[in-house]
C-alpha cells in the first residue's frame, strides 16, 4: 500500500463519516461542523489527485464561505429551539428513501460507465483552467459574471427595502 492509498482511505472515511453525521446529528451546530469536515476531506482528495486548484477552491468556497455563512445564520437565529425530528409520515420517508437510492444508483452507474482518458499531469492546474475559461468558455464566463453581479445588486436592493 502506498502512502497515497493510505491517505485516500483516511480522507474518504472522514468525508463519508462527515456526510453521514451531517444528516444524523441533532443539533444544527454539530451538523455544520461535520459538514466542514466533509468538505475539507473532499478537498484533500482533490489534492491527492493533483487537482490542487480545484482542491483549494473547494476549501475557499465551501469551508471558507459556505460553512461560515451557515454559522452566521445559526448565530443570528434562535437555533436552540429548532430541532430536526424525523418526519413521522411514512409516505415522506418512502419518497425520501426511493429518491436517494435512485440517485445513488444513477451516480454509480455514471461513474462505472465513464470512459476515463489515461492522461498524466496537471488536469486541474490554475493555468489550464484559466486558459479554458478565458478562451473557449469566455462568453459563458462573462455571462455568468454579469448574472452574479445582477443577483448581488438585487439582493442589496431587497435588503435595503426591508431595512427602510
Amino acid at each position: 500500500m502506498t502512502a497515497q492509498e493510505i491517505f485516500f482511505i483516511i480522507l474518504a472515511l472522514i468525508a463519508v463519516t462527515g456526510a453521514l453525521l451531517l444528516v444524523l446529528l441533532k443539533p444544527i451546530s454539530h451538523r455544520v461542523v461535520s459538514m466542514a469536515f466533509a468538505f475539507m476531506a473532499i478537498s484533500g482528495l482533490y489534492f491527492l489527485l493533483g487537482a490542487e486548484f480545484i482542491g483549494i477552491v473547494q476549501i475557499m468556497v465551501y469551508v471558507g464561505a459556505i460553512t461560515i455563512l451557515f454559522v452566521f445564520g445559526m448565530m443570528m437565529t434562535e437555533h436552540r429551539t429548532i430541532v430536526f425530528e424525523r418526519d413521522p409520515r411514512l409516505s415522506h420517508q418512502a419518497i425520501g428513501l426511493i429518491s436517494s437510492v435512485s440517485l445513488l444508483g444513477l451516480l454509480i452507474f455514471g461513474i462505472l460507465s465513464m470512459d476515463l482518458p489515461q492522461t498524466e499531469g496537471y488536469v486541474g492546474s490554475a493555468e489550464a483552467i484559466g486558459l479554458e475559461l478565458y478562451g473557449y468558455f469566455f462568453v459563458a464566463f462573462i455571462g455568468s459574471a454579469f448574472l452574479l453581479t445582477a443577483a448581488l445588486i438585487g439582493a442589496i436592493v431587497v435588503a435595503r427595502k426591508e431595512a427602510d
Binding site: 466542514a36 476549501i59 469551508v63 454559522v71 492546474s125
Partner: peptide, 25 residues
C-alpha cells in the same frame, strides 16, 4: 505548490471558523 498563494489564503480562512464556533458555543 504551484498554487502556493491560493493555498495560503484559502487555508488561512478556516482559522476563523474555529474562532466563530468557539465564540458561539
Amino acid at each position: 505548490l504551484n498554487i502556493g498563494i491560493l493555498y495560503l489564503l484559502g487555508v488561512a480562512s478556516i482559522t476563523m471558523l474555529g474562532v466563530l464556533m468557539g465564540g458561539w458555543s
